[in-house]
Amino acid sequence: MTGLRLKPATIIGLLAVAALPLVVRYFLPASEKYYLHLLIQILLWSFIYTGWSLMGRFGLTSLGHGAFTGIGAYATVMLWNFAGITPWIGIPVAVALATVVGVLVGYPCFRFRIAGHYFALLTLALTEFVRLCIVGLRDFTGGSLGTQPRRYGDGISLYALQFEPDRMLAYYIAFGLWVLGLYVWLRVDGSMDRYALDAASQDEDAAASVGINVTRERLKITALSSAMCALGGAIFAQYQMYIGPDTIAGLGLSLNIVFAAIAGGIWVLLGPTVGAVFTQVLAETLRVVIQGSATLKGMFGSSALALDQLIYGLLLVLFIIYMPNGILGTTMAWWRRRAAARAATGRAGN
């Protein structure tokens, strides 16, 4: 790999995202904290969704990534709370643990060709298993109520990797993570492994017959993907300063990851990011609308908050039926078609 050549547009784009908090500070100083929180969440989830789509785009639809984010978050926090081990060591340990679990579950799956429905349902069982372990170890994890990382000093510490009170700092940490995710995606996209995995996802036997070690290739991408999700989960825990079995692990989260990634588009670089923007903005907008509207509140009370999930579910059904390439994938295809049509008419005119 000779390093990625950065196009001017890429640099401008990165700078624009990097400058976002400054824009917020300048134009919306009153609610800076709120908007930064929204942006941080979008970036952190983008990273996790990108990690999932590394596997998802090759036909490995895993419902087990809620397990990896859960392992990442809980292992880091447990090591800090009960052994006093700094997250600088705890996070690598947690990521390694999640990777080992991913490979342990992945190896028999790929070796014995457990694919499609079976793979999805088996990884679903992994998610449930991890969630039940978290709930079961309630003496340490706080059970289904969740727990908090022990606060170190005033909550901002390099040693304890805690940065929640300083939203600017948190934003740039999330930004760094997001860029890392995109970089990994591009590295995979430009590698030979990508072609091998593409071939394997279309026809496993044919791919194997031309000398691709399908099991090994799939294990590599699974390890990478589970490591990324564990890292994302760990950083998310450090930012939220709270972990619960349903917020950072479990089936609901697994499905959320899958759907947000698909809604954005899993075959394009920024698809998962678009998915994160879309889902977060949708949820926040609806929340604000509901809180501002007395009628809706009167009709449904506090359960009006489920409205975003309702619309979300409905949209997902529609997306999968009518737009399986996701928002960004479909838009880009449309844009390319239009450009091609324009070029064709241009030539015809000359």
Binding site: F259, L310, G313, L316
Partner: peptide, 11 residues
Amino acid sequence: LLVTGGVLFLL
């Protein structure tokens, strides 16, 4: 499988 997952959220 995924489309019925959307229905899960919906219901």
